[in-house]
Computed example of a mutant assay.
Amino acid sequence: MKDVIFDDFQNSVNESLLRHRSILDIMTKLQESESRINRAVAKSVTYCGCVQIEAKKQNAADNCNDMDVEELEHCLQTHIKGSPCENCRDVIEREIGNNLFYLASLCNLLDLNLYDILLKEYDNINTLGKYTLR
């Protein structure tokens, strides 16, 4: 069932994309949409204040020398305090949706199946787990 949703999404994107059919247009729109996601997250910090970023040096080298990979996630911080309010969440979700649209558009132009890509990445993550070290 999930592959049908992905395929339907990808097909709908293909049918609705009219103005930006060039690979160059798609690539630049994808990059722009990534910037808009970053901007939406930044505005949740700087404009709304529902999210705070308290960044500092990760002390993995100091505190985590004797830990194995499984324990590292408890040692590293996200630097995020709080969570997006409903309005900021809506904006961020909309921008991520736009990004998915252009990602699916890129897949369409290159004759790639987004669901197949997701499955391959899912298999890599499940096979390597935390050892993917991303």
Rank of each mutant, 00 (worst) to 15 (best):
A61R: 15
T132M: 04
E15Y: 08
E86K: 13
V91G: 01
H74C: 13
N113G: 08
N65H: 13
I96D: 00
L18I: 14
L109G: 04
Q52W: 06
F6R: 01
Y102R: 01
E121R: 10
T28H: 11
I96P: 00
K43M: 10
L72C: 03
L112Y: 11
C48L: 05
V13G: 04
E15G: 01
I96G: 02
V45G: 10
A42S: 15
L110W: 08
D68W: 12
C88H: 00
Q58V: 05
I26V: 07
E93R: 14
C50W: 02
I125M: 15
C85L: 06
K120I: 11
Q31P: 00
D7P: 02
T127E: 15
M27K: 07
R36G: 05
N14H: 08
L18W: 09
I125R: 15
G97A: 14
E70T: 08
V13K: 01
M27G: 03
L118I: 01
N11Q: 14
L119N: 08
N126I: 03
N59A: 09
S83H: 10
D90L: 11
V91K: 08
L72P: 05
I53T: 06
N59T: 12
L112Q: 04
A60I: 05
S105F: 06
L103H: 00
D25Y: 04
S33K: 03
K81V: 13
R39V: 12
R19H: 08
T28W: 14
N98A: 13
E121A: 15
R36V: 06
I92E: 08
N63V: 09
L30C: 13
S44T: 05
E32K: 15
I26E: 03
L133D: 15
